[in-house]
Amino acid sequence: MSGWKTHLGKAICLDIENVDTDQLIPARFMSTPRAEGYGSFLLHDMRSDSSGVPFSDFPINKHPNASILIGRRNFGSGSSREAAVYALVDFGIRAIVAPSFGDIFASNSVNNGLLPALVSEEDATRLFALIDDDEVDLSIDIEKRKITVGDQSIPFILSEAWAQKLINGWDDIDLTEHHRPAIAAYRARRAQTLPWVFPAEETAG
């Protein structure tokens, strides 16, 4: 995965609270291999009627080139399904801006190069007012933790750990490989001091 520091793209609004990961991708699509692409599953049951006909005025239908989504509180709550992030990423979304995120969703996002930019309630409301149901050019700078729209700039919160991961496109497994000796030493210590933590019945059938 390649990293990124800045992004300029079209921002749209999704004015709904508690957009849980069951909405982001309904469970029935999750047996699809990723190679087939998850973009068409994004918000599937919100963006189309029960026979699959899309609602033309639904934000992501109206603006299929959007790459930034402004959301409301508790975005991505619920299930740990990383497929919710795949649906966003495969659709072309690079950043979600919202006043709060589901914890697991936020870490899944960072693991897939998707920025969960945390803003205050007031700033989220400001963005909603600026963008409304249009699409607006917006730029994001991860290092400066800054969103710029027109002559306005809005700060966002992102931990240093997550900023580094997004910028470098790091895969944690590579990072962890460097710590093999420390992990082995920990394991040996644990096996010695608390031997019962390793299950009594090791791999059987």
Partner: peptide, 22 residues
């Protein structure tokens, strides 16, 4: 605690997980 697929792959490969303390 629950984890996403990238984290599952990490645990499978290393039996460890990176976390910020809540």
């Amino acid at each position: 605690f629950g984890i996403g697929a990238t984290e599952v792959a990490h645990v499978l490969a290393t039996q460890t997980i990176w976390q910020t303390k809540p």
